[in-house]
Design a protein around this nucleic acid. Structure first.
Lengths: 109, 109
DNA sequence: TGGCCATATGGCAATTATGCCATACATATC
DNA sequence: GATATGTATGGCATAATTGCCATATGGCCA
């Protein structure tokens, strides 16, 4: 990797956020948290994985600043911290739709 | 992973696109390709990695429909296919900036 | 045809990500 | 204090990603 160091760091910090977004379970979590602040136990039920797995996914999202945590008694409530996620989701949906269209066109429909 | 199958597939297809975006080299490539259609050799110089490595990164971006390829003689010219990438990049920048602000606030500045 | 250029692909080693189990931790209740 | 509940963390085995080398493929020109 001979990329200029400054440039490399620039893209590395951005890729770290993108990596946090690059997992189906974390996308599901973000979708849920965008609708409403939710505790870990409810999120665990929603995802259907081990509670420790969900906690780790939440930690990944939190570490890059996408979500934040509020403690209430023994429970942790997570919420989305940025209002910019729609820009990301819209982009993904656009690409998906374009792929579907291209697929249909290739099939000659 | 006990997530409902339909839901799982929904988020998996979206995560696949996000995964393609989750690498510093590929973000650099997208940045360059957004500015102008470019051949693999120029992109290889830009990235500073092995040509085969760059080719594989380009293949990943192409497979999820983010870029397309045009052959001209022995050369391949790649370009961005969707106009929605700005939504993604803007989101990332917003998160980065919010993190910086939070960091400064935490430092008491 | 033979050789050269640009690009793509196969293969492999090393790193990283993922998910579960067990367990630690913190809070609340008895 | 003891116990129960909700969450976080350590550890480990498995899987996925990454990057380079070697090589294949395709196009061009002598």
């Amino acid at each position: 990797m001979a990329m200029k160091r400054k440039t490399l760091r620039h893209y590395e910090s951005r890729a770290e956020i993108a990596k946090a977004l690059a997992h189906p379970t974390r996308l599901l979590l973000l979708d849920a948290l965008q609708k409403s602040e939710t505790c870990v136990c409810d999120l665990t039920d929603l995802v259907g994985a081990d509670q420790s797995t969900v906690s780790k996914h939440l930690a990944i999202l939190k570490n890059v600043g996408l979500i934040a945590c509020r403690k209430e008694g023994p429970m942790s409530f997570y919420r989305v911290t940025c209002r910019c996620l729609d820009g990301f989701f819209t982009c993904i949906e656009t690409v998906l739709k374009a792929n579907l269209d291209a697929q249909r066109a290739a099939a000659g429909v």
